[in-house]
Structure formats: structure tokens, C-alpha cells
Simulated scan of single mutants.
Amino acid sequence: MDIKIRVGVTVFCLLLVGCFSNDDGGFGRTVSLNIQDAISMENLKQYNVGDTIFFDLRFSRYLAEEGFDEPVDIFETTKAEHFSFSFDFQKFSELENRFSPINIDEEFVVAEKRDLDTFYYYGGYGTSVGLNEAQDSYETTVGIILVEDGLFRFDFDNIYIQSPYDFEQVQISIYHSFSVDGRLDTEFEVLE
């Protein structure tokens, strides 16, 4: 093979590899945002087996991004009508003298119909928060049917809300935290 052809093929291959270097966007485009006090719940502190305890998650479609004056329209950015999140549900163990995560069977979780992506994992449960009818915020109400007695609590620390992965769209990761005034008392007792 002629040296000019070899050099030409080599240069062409290098240019072709450069086109797939992913420097023009695509994979890995993630925007991290923060929200506070988006979770609320009415905690009666004492429930009976068979009762359902609910919590709400609500946040605006327009979120502040550090370093920018204008808020990010997370729906326009991601085209996502649902964001997924997970939460921990814990029971107090007298043997261990501490709260420990417990599994929640899917049949004991009540979520709004628009929350399509429900899943469970060891020590927690995940669902999604959906764009409301006015299309100005994402909201959901999730309930847990209480089927056994004991001392329980939700653990809403370190909640991340994620847009679905889509190679064509920016992914948004939202970290939820509580302000000092917004911290929730999520501990409650369930009686037989």
C-alpha cells in the first residue's frame, strides 16, 4: 500500500475518532440544583394498624441555579414530566436500640396515579413526582399503609430527585434539604 494512502487513512481515522469524542454535548450533561423544605407532612404522632400516613413533595418548575440570575425551567431543559426520588422508612429495633431501614412492599404504598415509576429497594421506596395540571410545579402525595405496630419514622435526609436519563437532554439532579425552621418531626407510633 502506498505511504500517501496509509497516511490519508490514518488522518481520516483520527478525524473520525475526534468526531465521537463527546466534546459537543450528549452523555454526562448534568445540572445540579438545590431546593429546601419541599417535603411536608401532617404527623399525628400516633396511628393505628390499618391507618395511612401521607407526605407531600412539591417544588417549582423554575429553580434557582447558582451563578445565574434567571431560574432554570427544568421542564424545558429536560422535557421530563416526572422526576424520580426515593425515601427511607425506618422502624425502631429494641434489640439494636436504634432505627433501622425496612422494606416496604409495593402493595402498602399509595401514590398518585401520575407517579408511574414506583420501585422498592432494601430500606427504602422510590416513586416519582409529576408535573401538575397547571404545569408550574412538580408535586406528589405518597402514603404508607401502616400494617404493624411499633415506633417508625421517615428519613428524608439526603433525598435526590432525578430527571430520567435521556441522551438527547440535559439531566437534572436536585438535592433536597431542610432549613432549621423547616425540619420535620417524622417519628410516630403505630398501635395494634
Rank of each mutant, 00 (worst) to 15 (best):
Y175E: 14
K91H: 11
E107G: 01
T30V: 15
I161F: 07
Y160C: 01
S86I: 01
R6W: 01
R98F: 00
D69K: 13
S173P: 02
V110N: 11
D166S: 10
Y121L: 05
P164R: 12
S21K: 12
N34F: 03
E112H: 01
D185V: 11
K45D: 10
V147F: 08
I174Q: 07
I104E: 01
F167E: 14
N34L: 08
V31G: 04
D51A: 07
G25V: 10
S84W: 01
K4I: 07
K113M: 04
K4V: 12
G8Q: 01
L63P: 05
K113D: 12
P164L: 14
F156A: 07
V9N: 09
L33H: 08
S40R: 13
N34M: 07
F99P: 03
C19T: 14
P71M: 06
V11H: 00
I3N: 11
F99G: 04
G182L: 04
D105F: 05
I39K: 00
A64I: 06
L184T: 03
Y175N: 14
L151Y: 12
V190T: 09
R153M: 07
Y175K: 15
T140V: 13
T127H: 01
I5E: 13
I161C: 05
V170S: 09
G28P: 03
L16S: 15
Q90H: 07
G28S: 03
Q90N: 10
F75Q: 08
Y138F: 15
L57C: 05
F68D: 15
L44W: 03
I161E: 10
Y121A: 10
L16Y: 13
V7K: 12
Y160L: 11
D185K: 13
V72T: 09
E66M: 04
F156Q: 07
I174P: 02
G25C: 08
N43T: 10
